[in-house]
Amino acid sequence: MDIQAQPIRVVLLDDHEIFLKGLEKLLSQQPVLRLVASFSTGKMLIETLPQLQADVLLLDLQVPDITAEELLAQIKKIYPKVPVLYLTMMRGSRIMHRIEKLGASGYILKDASVAQLLTAIQCVAAGDTYFLEESLSKDEEKNTVTQPSIRVAESLSKREIEILNLVCQEYSSAEIGEKLFLSTGTVDTHRRNILVKLGVNNTVGLVKFAIQNGLLNEV
């Protein structure tokens, strides 16, 4: 079944009214998304969430009425499996590690492009994680492509490893989609997320990385 057949239902939280209204309009204009509700406080979100159906929670990392840790804990009690994607202006490895520790599915910078935001939402909706490449320092980017394969296997989902194997076998996105019963757009989203996670720029880099780290046929 094509997981992108129905619009992704998004719930939004941000305490800055101008940004919130702008993001509401932006999300409402995307055919692949459906904005279910938006909130300006964590308390309002928690009170209303049990009555909502959502595929992704797009949350400001810092709202004044509740900490990110407390908010996520409350969310997990209501919908333990709904992915949380954080919005933030903060960059760098420290914030990335904090979000990973929280158990969220990823984060996107508030000055990211619309394409990046859509990719991030689609990735977490598909059960993957999303951490924007530019949030890493140059040294961390270098380490990303040389880290032990066991750590890479932990950072990639089973689906991503499966797609990586097919990419290395020279399957096109359309062919991979047909083989795995996914849309071409979904496969492309996975491929972009794999590039980000592994810190490489193209298919040649993916193949080289997979061979060097023993990831081929690791499904």
Score class of each variant (00 low, 15 high):
Leu45Ala: 03
Val167Glu: 03
Pro83Asn: 08
Glu154Gln: 14
Pro7Val: 03
Leu117Ile: 15
Asn213Trp: 00
Cys168Glu: 08
Ser93Tyr: 06
Glu170Trp: 04
Leu20Ile: 00
Leu27Phe: 01
Glu47Ile: 09
Asp55Trp: 00
Leu182Lys: 15
Asn217Ile: 05
Val167Asn: 04
Leu198Arg: 11
Pro80Cys: 05
Leu109Gln: 13
Asn165Cys: 12
Ala54Asn: 02
Lys138Asp: 11
Gly103Gln: 06
Tyr79His: 14
Ile18Asn: 10
Leu13Asp: 02
His190Asn: 08
Asp188Trp: 00
Val204Asn: 11
Thr144Met: 14
Leu215Pro: 08
Glu140Leu: 13
Phe209Lys: 14
Ile8Gly: 03
Ile211Trp: 08
Ile75Cys: 05
Leu216Ala: 04
Lys138Ala: 04
Ile121Asn: 08
Lys21Phe: 02
Ala73Trp: 00
Glu100Arg: 14
Asp65Trp: 05
Leu20Asn: 06
Gly92Tyr: 08
Leu118Gly: 01
Leu156Ser: 09
Phe209Pro: 07
Val63Lys: 04
Asp2Pro: 15
Val219Asp: 09
Lys110Gln: 12
Thr146His: 12
Thr186Lys: 13
Thr67Met: 13
Gln74Ser: 15
Leu206Trp: 05
Leu13Tyr: 06
Glu154Met: 11
Arg9Trp: 01
Ala153Pro: 06
Ile66Ser: 04
Leu12His: 14
Asp128Gly: 15
Ile150His: 10
His97Ala: 14
Asp139Arg: 14
Leu49Asn: 08
Leu198Trp: 03
Ser155Glu: 13
Ile95Lys: 14
Glu162Cys: 15
Asp188Ser: 05
Leu71Ser: 07
Asn202Gly: 06
Glu134Thr: 12
Ala37Phe: 09
Leu26Ala: 02
Asp14Ala: 03
Glu70Asp: 10
Ala153Asn: 09
Thr88Glu: 04
Ala120Arg: 15
Arg91Cys: 01
Met90Tyr: 14
Glu47Ala: 10
Ala174Asn: 05
Leu72Asn: 10
Glu175Lys: 14
Leu85Ile: 07
His97Ser: 02
Glu175Thr: 00
Thr144Arg: 14
Pro148Cys: 04
Ile95Trp: 10
Met96Asp: 11
Gln6Ala: 09
Leu156Gln: 04
Leu117Asp: 01
Lys138Trp: 12
Leu12Ser: 05
Ile46Val: 15
Cys168Thr: 13
Ile46Ala: 04
Lys77Met: 10
Leu45Gln: 03
Gly22Val: 07
Ser149Glu: 02
Glu154Ala: 12
Leu49Glu: 06
Gln53Ser: 13
Met90Thr: 10
Ala54Tyr: 03
Leu45Gly: 05
Thr88Met: 02
His16Tyr: 00
Leu206Asn: 03
Leu87Met: 13
Val219Thr: 11
Lys142Glu: 15
Arg192His: 07
Glu175Pro: 07
Thr189Val: 12
Ala5Val: 08
Phe181Leu: 15
Gly22Leu: 14
Leu33Val: 00
Met44Gly: 07
Ala37Pro: 07
Val32Trp: 12
Ile121Arg: 06
Val114Met: 14
Tyr171His: 15
Thr144Glu: 10
Arg94Leu: 09
Gln147Ser: 05
Arg159Ser: 10
Glu154Cys: 01
Met89Glu: 01
Asp65Pro: 03
Asp60Asn: 12
Pro83Leu: 04
Met89Cys: 00
Ser172Asp: 09
Thr67Gln: 11
Ile161His: 08
Leu71Trp: 03
Leu215Gln: 10
Ile150Gln: 07
Gln4Arg: 13
Val152Pro: 07
Lys21Trp: 00
Leu49Ser: 02
Arg191Thr: 00
Tyr130Leu: 06
Ser40Phe: 01
Lys101Glu: 12
Ser40His: 02
Gln212Glu: 11
